[in-house]
Design a protein around this nucleic acid. Structure first.
Length: 213
DNA sequence: GCAAAGATTTGCT
DNA sequence: GCAAATCTTTGCC
C-alpha cells in the first residue's frame, strides 16, 4: 500500500505499515539542496482512539492532543520527559483521535546536517565544558543510522519541535513533509516501547512496526 | 495552585 | 542494568 491521504484516513494499523518505507523530508531553511535532510522511515508505533490507555488521547481532548482529533496527515509534535520532542502523523478521520509515532528513520541524504543538528541539540543541554567535549566525541563517532535511531533523536536530527505541530505533512511544498517511498516488504509487529504505565491489554498490543533487517 | 508522572536518552555502577 | 536529567501536561485539592 503506497502512502496517501486515503491510507492515513483509514485504520491506523494500516497507516502505520504504509508509513514504513516512506521518506521524512526536512527542507533546508535557505532551500539549499545539499542541506536537505531525508530519512527512510523504519520504525513506527500506532496510538488509536481514546480507549488506548497508552495514548495521549486517553484523557479525551486536551490543549496538547487537540490535533490528534483533527484530519489525517497533520503533524503532532510533543515534548516528552522535558527533554525530547517526538513527531507523530495524525491518522483516521477528524473526530477520531489517532496517530503514528515516527520512532526511527534510516538517513538517505543530509547526514552532515543531521549530525550538526544532533550536536547543536546536545550542546544546548550540556552544562559543563566536559559534557560538551563528550557530546562532540559521541555524536561525531555515530554511524548515520545512529543519528536517527529513536523518536527523540529523529526530532533532534531533523530540527523538529512543537512549533511544527499542525503542518500538513502530505503537502509537497511543506518545509517538513513525508513523501511516498518503496514500501517496506518484511514488517515485524511488537509491543510498543515505554508504555509500562498502561494496563493490559494495551501494554502488550503489537502496535509497533519495524522493518526486518 | 500543587504534585505527580511521562510515547526518552545517556552515563555510570 | 539502573537512575538521572528536565519541564510540560494533567489531575486533583
Amino acid at each position: 500500500m503506497t502512502l496517501s491521504r486515503e491510507i492515513l484516513a483509514g485504520p491506523t494499523l494500516d497507516a502505520a505499515r504504509a508509513l514504513l518505507g516512506a521518506y521524512l523530508v526536512r527542507e533546508a531553511p535557505d532551500g539549499a539542496p545539499e542541506a536537505r535532510r531525508i530519512g527512510r522511515i523504519v520504525e513506527v508505533e500506532a496510538y488509536i482512539g481514546e480507549d488506548d490507555a497508552a495514548s495521549h488521547a486517553r484523557f479525551g481532548r486536551t490543549p496538547r492532543n487537540a490535533v490528534m482529533f483533527g484530519p489525517p496527515g497533520i503533524s503532532y509534535v510533543y515534548l516528552v520527559y522535558g527533554m525530547y520532542e517526538c513527531l507523530n502523523v495524525v491518522t483516521e478521520p477528524a473526530g477520531r483521535p489517532a496517530a503514528v509515532l515516527i520512532r526511527a528513520v534510516e538517513p538517505v541524504a543530509g547526514v552532515p546536517a543531521m549530525r550538526a543538528a544532533r550536536l547543536a541539540h546536545a550542546l544546548r543541554r550540556a552544562g559543563t565544558a566536559d559534557a560538551r567535549l563528550r557530546a562532540i566525541a559521541r555524536i561525531g563517532a555515530l554511524m548515520p543510522s545512529g543519528l536517527t535511531a529513536g523518536p527523540g533523536l529523529v526530532a533532534a536530527a531533523f530540527d523538529i519541535s512543537r512549533e511544527d505541530t499542525g503542518l500538513d505533512l502530505l503537502e509537497p511544498s511543506a518545509p517538513l513533509r513525508i513523501e511516498a517511498g518503496a514500501a517496506a516488504v518484511d514488517i515485524v509487529a511488537t509491543p510498543r516501547i515505554g508504555i509500562g504505565y498502561a494496563p493490559e491489554p494495551w501494554r502488550s498490543l503489537p502496535w509497533r512496526f519495524t522493518e526486518r533487517r
